[in-house]
Design a binder for these strands. Structure first.
Length: 951
RNA sequence: GCCGGCGUGGCCCAAUUGGCAGAGGCACCAGGUUUAGGACCUGGGUGUUGUGGGUUCGAGUCCCACCGCCGGCACCA
């Protein structure tokens, strides 16, 4: 890294030039001032941080960043992009009079800290706190206007106490489908007691044992223990949520193999909220691509449930194409389907058992590889197709997933490619229900035929229905798929053989992890193994101290060993004596911990009221900052900025928790984040030599479009900043070489906030030069004295100023900081010209310039503000307002086109009428020359814009 | 394979939403200043708007096809 000011020429640099060293002095002075004066403390209407006078008569604004995980590597220049963006916006809105809440906490539970502890033997809390201290230092130097009082860590005991409390709210809640809302579990029990709702067992509630009652309520609780198939990752020693498993069946973190197996785990019934999570997306101000990703993830799919009779009872299948039921020639069950055992005949049992065993040890990687040949086995039993009354064989295959639909499908090989391949593989019959158009046969080079043995693949699309009739129903002939579906659904429904239904891709959320560094569950088990919640008065359940952080060591391919969570080894913690209302008894604690997502599901609510020990957030405080702004508004954070990587994880989980809290009456807002903005990523070039080794990017020189490292030619690539690519640039380097204001300005100027772009350190100097020129317009570089004059601003400069004000205000409101900056540079360039022509900068320009610069470069703006003689911070000064009279110019230049080509430009009065404009254009010599003797066939006049003659 | 997003001077990016292709920064070139370099000042835009069609008086912008890059999903019945 070359230094912009070589020390041996230090004498030639004016003493008061805006250098990195000068900036550092200014910046640290104002950072201390803000801290000492609590400049950014936002008043609350109630609770411990109440300051009603500070709240009165101001609109509120809650600006939020996706909070960081305190990584040991510290920050690189890509990390603060969003934080700077929200800071600029928050400062801008403060100047417009808003009471702005802006704070930053730390998402400090998680795997990396634990893995660090395993390798070093140092407690994760020690390492986590050190990392947080380092990140706080790096971020403080950036000059972010955060309310320090509200900076929480998810690992704080007083924070995770409330994470556990919210878990208990969810545990003690059920979903009432009749009103589509969560309700307290006691209201369900009341229904059981009164008989309004019958129990699953059919027994009267009051006659049931505690174990029976527990079984009944567990079937409804929004947090429950389930024995479902989970994603077991022996390499990490834990299970993972679906969202944490990559498409190729490996862990998102660490890239270890993941296996499907049954385990008893805490699960949350997020799937019951599918419709609300889907529908309420319409009410959110979010980027459309993120909404689409959530829609795809929820995966709502309309179809029908169809019942097939069999020797083991009814088999229910889900299909999106009930109209093809006449072509269902076999049934396929998932290997985990509960009826498999009963349907397997004696002759087939051995091969069925073998297939199930083999399927259970197959990794998701293999199972989801769609290029793999279909596998499966015949159960020996048959079902009856309800429309044809024909017996059809029942097979088992792993391409049918237990977790989706009913875990069973009706196979229509003529209309589904997977079923087609399966039928071909095992020589099962294929019956056409739709005749494709001739073009389809032409495309496959075969003669049109409804004999599917000649078909090369299944046919999916609109086609004439064939072979689709029985005594009471006929779909045959030309009709739309939708009409055919409706006819079939009605027929099935009339006979109680099925009904239209909806299925979702979204599964319930696996919520326990076999780790140490996470929130303990506020759950204990009695001697009968029944779960009990810990009363609120006993929260938090503290994470016990641990001497050895190692998990049991497992081979990443060991799919069968059971996990032993670290907490299970803390025997004096696991066994505890509590009085849960029926006297002191011995209990066994839950030894799993919550996943890292838990804290981030609600942290924004704690920012609102971080020190409240009575509520997780005071209801009045929540209503003030996040309540709906009008009828039908969802409420929530006014602006949430973060990366797109959380589209279906954090953002979906947090919405789910928030909705439960809303339904139970704890928050007034229906959604946590009303407006979402995805910032882009800053990436960087990296360089490899011929051996494929990365070389330090800062040592690479460019020459004639090629790149060299120590005279050796190297190859450029583009990627994330990281150790492995040797292309990290840190904020600290930027502070040292340019200062924080220049760094902030560069990050905001390099492109739109939502765009990803490459970092280029050598471009930063442009922003430093701008601030140097601005500084030089205010200060004599040699003496350090203010040179601003009290003279009136000349009209030309005044007009340039107001044009700038108007544009910058609009750009900042729309988060277009890059164009706001270009307008400020433009104004400063105009001002520089004025100063260079022998004038001093007028105070009438410098004052609004300092105000406009303040959100972007707050330290320099504060410094100039103080030099101008003000004794209070610029933070709450009003943002300049443009004078409309100075925006409108008197004349405007209008291009005149002939046949769409610009032939001349005429200067006319603003607001000139259509006729006058046309006359002025026709009077222009160049225009008449271009038209010549021809007569225009058409004349287009756009008032104030252009004139076009078409010959 | 399906679904998104993006392609504008050498580079990062603007363009009042269909109306003169250029705001700003980097780089580059020339001149000034300077013993010199850096810094500073003045001036300079280097282009088939990814390609090919279409709509229109007029297309960077709208439509269609294709190419390239990035991202999401992927045996979801």
């Amino acid at each position: 890294m070359t230094s912009p000011q070589p020390p041996d020429f230090a004498g030639s640099i004016p003493a008061h030039r805006y250098t990195a060293a000068l900036a550092a002095g200014i910046e640290q002075r104002w950072q201390n001032y803000w801290q000492d004066n609590h400049t950014f403390d936002a008043p609350n209407p109630a609770g411990p941080l109440a300051d009603p006078a500070g709240v009165a008569n101001r609109a509120k604004l809650f600006v939020l960043d996706m909070f960081p995980y305190p990584s040991g590597a510290g920050l690189h220049v890509g990390h603060p992009l969003g934080y700077i963006g929200t800071d600029v916006y928050a400062r801008f809105k403060r100047m417009q009079g808003y009471n702005v809440l802006h704070a930053l906490g730390y998402d400090s539970f998680g795997l990396p800290a634990e893995q660090h502890a395993i390798s070093t033997g140092i407690h994760p809390r020690v390492n986590t706190n050190a990392n947080i201290a380092n990140m706080r230092r790096q971020l403080r130097r950036l000059g972010l206007g955060h309310d320090e009082r509200r900076s929480i860590c998810t690992t704080d005991e007083e924070f995770y106490k409330w994470t556990q409390w919210i878990f208990l709210q969810i545990y003690n809640a059920w979903f009432d489908p009749s009103i589509s809302r969560a309700r307290h579990i006691n209201e369900l029990i009341a229904q059981f007691v009164s008989g309004e709702r019958s129990t699953a067992s059919g027994d009267a509630w009051n006659t049931m044992t505690p174990a029976q009652k527990s079984l009944e309520t567990d079937a409804y609780r929004l947090a429950y223990l389930s024995d479902a198939p989970v994603n077991w990752c022996p390499g990490l020693g834990t299970i993972l949520a679906n969202e944490e498993v990559t498409a190729d069946g490996r862990s998102d973190i660490g890239n270890y193999p993941v296996f499907r197996r049954n385990m008893r785990q805490w699960t949350m019934r997020i799937s019951l909220f599918s419709d609300r999570l889907l529908e309420d997306l319409e009410r959110l101000d979010w980027p459309e691509p993120i909404k689409l990703m959530q829609r795809n993830w929820i995966g709502r799919s309309e179809g029908a449930r169809v019942s097939f009779s069999s020797s083991a009872g009814e088999i229910n299948v889900f299909t999106t194409r009930p109209d093809t039921l006449f072509g269902a020639t076999f049934i396929v069950l998932s290997p985990e389907h509960p009826l498999v055992e009963a349907l397997s005949t004696t002759e087939q049992r051995e091969s069925v058992t073998a297939y199930i065993a083999q399927a259970s040890t197959t990794t998701d990687t293999d199972r989801q590889d769609d290029s793999r040949a279909k596998t499966g086995v015949f159960t020996g039993s048959f079902a009856v197709n309800p429309v044809t009354n024909q017996p059809i064989p029942i097979w088992i295959a792993d391409y049918v997933l237990m977790g989706y639909g009913t875990g069973a499908i009706m196979a229509v090989p003529s209309g589904d490619q997977r079923d087609f391949e399966f039928a071909r593989q095992f020589h099962l019959s294929i019956v056409a229900t739709q005749m494709p158009a001739d073009a389809w046969f032409d495309a496959h080079h075969i003669a049109p035929s409804n004999d599917c043995s000649t078909w090369p693949s299944a046919f999916v699309g609109e086609g004439t229905y064939v072979n689709s009739a029985n005594d009471s129903l006929s779909l045959n002939g030309q009709r739309s798929i939708n009409d055919a579906k409706s006819l079939m659904n009605a027929w099935l429904s009339d006979r109680n053989l099925g009904e239209a239904t909806v299925t979702y891709r979204l599964r319930d959320w696996l919520f326990s992890r076999q780790r140490y560094w996470g929130e303990p569950f506020p759950i204990v088990y009695d001697e009968d193994g029944l779960a009990h919640d810990i009363p609120e008065s006993m929260l938090p359940v503290l994470l016990p101290e641990l001497a050895d952080f190692s998990p049991q060591s497992l081979d990443p391919m060991d799919s069968t060993s059971d996990p032993v969570p670290p907490l299970a080894r803390v025997t004096d913690w696991v066994t505890t004596t509590l009085d849960l209302g029926d006297g002191p008894r011995t209990y066994r604690r839950e030894v799993n911990v919550m996943p890292q997502w838990a804290g981030s599901c609600w942290y924004e609510l704690r920012y609102l009221d971080p020190t409240n020990d009575q509520f997780f957030v005071d209801p009045e405080v929540e209503k003030y900052w996040m309540g709906p702004s009008s009828a039908g508004h969802t409420g929530g954070v006014d602006l949430y900025v973060g990366g797109v990587e959380h589209a279906v994880l954090h953002l979906l989980y947090a919405r789910f928790w928030h909705k439960v809290l809303h339904d139970l009456g704890h928050v007034s807002s229906e959604e946590p984040f009303h407006r979402l903005f995805n910032q882009g990523y800053i990436q960087a070039y990296a360089y490899r030599d011929d051996r494929g080794q990365t070389v330090p990017a800062e040592e690479v020189k460019e020459q004639d479009g090629s790149f060299f490292h120590a005279d050796e030619k190297v190859h450029r690539e583009y990627g994330k900043m990281g150790k492995s690519l040797k292309n990290i640039v840190t904020p600290d380097e930027m502070y040292d070489e340019y200062g924080a204001d220049t760094f902030r300005l560069y990050e905001m100027a390099m492109g739109p906030l939502e765009a990803s772009r490459p970092w280029n350190t050598r471009d930063v100097v442009g922003m430093q030069r701008f601030l140097q020129r601005l500084w030089r317009n205010v200060i004599d570089e040699d003496t350090g004295l203010l040179t601003v004059s009290q003279d009136a601003v000349p009209e030309i400069l005044l007009r340039q100023l107001h044009k700038c004000i108007s544009g910058v205000a609009a750009d900042m409101e729309a988060l277009r900081f890059n164009t706001a900056i270009s307008k400020l540079i433009e104004l400063n360039n105009d001002l520089t010209q004025f100063v260079n022509s022998g004038h001093h900068a007028p105070v009438g320009v410098i004052t609004p310039m300092a105000q406009m610069l303040s959100p972007l470069c707050p330290h320099l703006a504060e410094e100039i503000w103080a030099l101008l003689g003000h004794s209070t911070s610029i933070t709450f000064e009003p943002f300049p307002v443009a004078d409309p009279r100075l925006l409108a110019s008197e004349t405007v230049e209008i291009p005149v086109q002939v046949n769409g080509k610009v032939r001349s430009r005429i200067v006319v009065a603003v607001g000139m009428s259509r006729d006058d404009l046309l006359a002025a254009a026709m009077a222009d010599d160049k225009v008449t020359a271009a038209i010549g003797s021809a007569t225009p066939t058409k004349t287009i006049v756009v008032v104030g814009k252009l004139v076009n003659f078409v010959l």
